[in-house]
């Protein structure tokens, strides 16, 4: 059951990622990207990382892809066919992709070899889900990094406002 679900969701991720790249229509690409994010959330759920899954849905599917689609729809005025064409960097992109794949494959094999065999019984999610453990970490041991990233995001937010406002042309 578990592995069947995994293959179903993995297929969803891979197919929608491929469709995202191959689709000629930019809006379709963005929507396929949302589908791929959603598939990843399901995979996280299967791994019993329910907090990561919910953040994946909330941030990636619910906010980032919507902003993508929003931006594309607002900026493009003419017809969308062929808006996501191919360019001349196929070979370089292929090389970068292969290098990344090799890196990931190496990481997976090393991690798989160094770790002991997974326990026979599937570990049950702790009561309250992984959210409890993560929030304890965030507000205890990792409080400083959390605050630092919050400061970084605040700076980004202020920067976005400044850039978005543009030069002082009209007072409004």
């Amino acid at each position: 059951m578990e592995s069947f679900l995994f293959y179903a969701f993995a297929a969803l991720v891979v197919i929608s990622a491929l469709a995202m790249i191959l689709s000629r229509n930019l809006v379709h690409s963005a929507l396929y990207m949302a589908a791929a994010f959603l598939g990843m959330a399901f995979v996280y759920l299967l791994l019993r990382a329910d907090y990561i899954a919910v953040v994946q849905i909330l941030v990636y599917v619910g906010a980032i892809s919507i902003l993508f689609v929003f931006g594309i729809m607002l900026t493009k005025r003419d017809r969308m066919d062929g808006s996501n064409g191919f360019n001349r960097y196929g070979i370089i992109a292929g090389l970068v992709g292969l290098a990344l794949f090799a890196l990931l494959a190496r990481a997976v094999t090393v991690a798989g070899a160094s770790r002991a065999a997974p326990p026979a019984d599937v570990p049950q999610a702790p009561a309250g889900g992984s959210a409890v453990a993560i929030s304890n970490l965030f507000l205890g041991q990792l409080a400083l990094p959390l605050e630092a990233s919050a400061l970084l995001l605040l700076a980004a937010l202020a920067g976005a406002v400044v850039i978005g406002k543009g030069r002082e042309k009209s007072k409004c």
């Binding site: 849905i57 599917v61 619910g62 892809s65 919507i66």
Partner: peptide
Amino acid sequence: AVSSTSTI
């Protein structure tokens, strides 16, 4: 989270 996806 799930209710936010209906905007898509």
